[in-house]
Amino acid sequence: MRLRMRRHHISMSCLFSFLISELLFVVRGSLAVLLMRSRISVVVWTELILRFIHGIRKSRLLLCHHVNRHLLCQFHTQFPLTIQSSYTLDMFKVPVHQVAGHQAIGGKLGPLVDDDGRFYKPLQSGERGSTEKAFYTSFSSNTSIPEDIRRFFPVFHGTQVLEASDGSGPCPHLVLQDIVSGHLSPSIMDIKMGANTWPPQSPEDYITRCLEKDRETTSINLGFRIEGFHIYRSEESDLWKPEKQFIKSFSAQDVRLVLKKFVSSNASPDLDLNPDCAFASIVYGGSTGILAQLRELKAWFEVQTIYRFYSCSVLMMHGKGGSGAAVKLVDFAHVVDGEGVIDHNFLGGLCSLIEFISKATQDEYPNKTCLKDSENNRSSSDNCTCE
Rank of each mutant, 00 (worst) to 15 (best):
E227D: 08
L211T: 15
P269R: 04
V155I: 12
S249A: 04
A280I: 01
V180P: 02
L259F: 13
L273N: 08
D254F: 00
D270M: 04
S202P: 10
L184C: 12
C277S: 11
E227I: 12
L273D: 06
V161M: 12
F246T: 15
P203G: 00
K192P: 02
Q253W: 08
E212G: 14
T159N: 00
W198C: 08
A164H: 07
E243S: 09
D205W: 08
D270T: 01
S268M: 01
S237D: 14
K261W: 10
S265Y: 10
S219A: 11
Q293K: 00
G223K: 00
P186V: 04
I247V: 14
S181Y: 15
S181C: 14
P242E: 05
S268I: 03
T197M: 09
F250V: 03
R150Q: 09
H157S: 08
S181Q: 15
L174F: 15
S187C: 12
E216C: 07
V283H: 11
E227L: 15
Q177C: 00
Q160E: 05
I179T: 14
Q253S: 11
V155L: 13
E235N: 12
P275W: 03
Y206S: 13
D254Y: 02
K244E: 09
D276W: 09
Q245R: 13
S181A: 15
K244C: 06
P200M: 12
R225L: 01
E227R: 13
S249V: 07
C171Y: 03
A278S: 13
V258D: 04
P200A: 13
V161E: 13
S237P: 00
Q253R: 10
L222Q: 03
I207F: 04
